[in-house]
Nucleic acid binder design. Sequence first.
DNA 1: ACCTGAACACCGTTCAAGT
DNA 2: ACCTGAACACCGTTCAAGT
Lengths: 232, 232
Amino acid sequence: MVTRAGRPQRRTEALSGERIVEAAVELLDTVGEAGLTFRALAERLATGPGAIYWHVANKDVLLAAATGTVIEAALSADEPGSPREKVHAVALGLFDAIDEHPWLADRLAAQLPRDPWGSVTLLIFERIGRQVRALGGPESSWLTATMTLVSYILGAAGQNATNARAVAPDVKRAEHLAATATAWKAMDPKEHPFVRAVADQLAEHDDREQFLAGVDLVLAGITASHPGKGRT
Amino acid sequence: MVTRAGRPQRRTEALSGERIVEAAVELLDTVGEAGLTFRALAERLATGPGAIYWHVANKDVLLAAATGTVIEAALSADEPGSPREKVHAVALGLFDAIDEHPWLADRLAAQLPRDPWGSVTLLIFERIGRQVRALGGPESSWLTATMTLVSYILGAAGQNATNARAVAPDVKRAEHLAATATAWKAMDPKEHPFVRAVADQLAEHDDREQFLAGVDLVLAGITASHPGKGRT
DNA sequence: ACCTGAACACCGTTCAAGT
DNA sequence: ACCTGAACACCGTTCAAGT
């Protein structure tokens, strides 16, 4: 254990996997995935690029470790509440984590399953699954319900973050949405009738609310499949 | 238009954006995303790396074009059927396309929204949205329902493809699932009770069926939110 | 055991020069 | 207008050599 960001003892307090991962996360947060370089990392750690390889096998496992650290931190809180509230908590935890660490977006779809059912995926799966179980449906429905919920949460959160990142930082989100809505409304009614129809709603929607509404929609689908217990 | 894979006229039939994208897709399919190199691409096209830049701005737009081409082809069929059947058709079209072109997995989460509401996302959104509208719910629910469905489909399909790719090609999918199930069942009941409980179901599940079951779950949630019209 | 830093084998991209 | 190919400024990774 490292005394988090603590005393920079003499010169360097020796390298370690944890210190490296910590520095990697900082680098990812400040300069993005393209900025995470073994040379930049080495400089930040006041060492040479080769030194890192003594503690970390390669860049892939470094990114995996960085992802794991951040996700675990995001899911550390486990407040009490109804199943729905707990699912919301996990979902929002991931949503916000991805929002704060946009580089997570690429990782969630790409890396989590790359180590299929690795520790991070398992953690999320277990968390969500428990609440699905608490919803009271038959055991035979648990796997499908949980997989669907997790897929939605990871998919939607990831897409949202990439969305946010795509827009130039100086452009206001509202302005950008308004511009998109205008473009949608100007589309050919023959080819894009639906997109035209929802253009106004798009301009008004809030990403976070929309995300949670999706969670509730999936939850409604789960409870609708076994009418009997708690409605919401 | 290029006469697809046709006559190799004399030597080279002049470069073009389409030919380059076509070659890029072939390269991606055969050697993966890491193998798509401007040098390799140039060699395949019997030219120099610099030539490509006259037709394609950079690697990002090349990948975007490759993604767009493949996705559009996957969604080209538009058979008649109930809204549910049509949603299934779009979902399976994407599922199978990602399965055949695994490099799409990284692109779907990462690139589609990078060009927020770019042509490909729009195409999928429009297709799904029309069916959501046909389900008969109030217009105010269309945006949320469609976004949720699209998020699930892209998220689940992407994760599935990465899952498939992660397993060594020589390992049978069934064997791998069985091994994972065994590992799940051996887990600490205190820490992973849910994962233990669904281990057997995991071993038996079929990826494609599971994926479609998720689509139906979301559809059930949509119809449950406005009871009145078509049940399924 | 741990670190250094030069070196290797690559990249994407540019650009003067050609046709 | 379109193509060539050398060159630039990087990468991740390795490895002999040090301490």
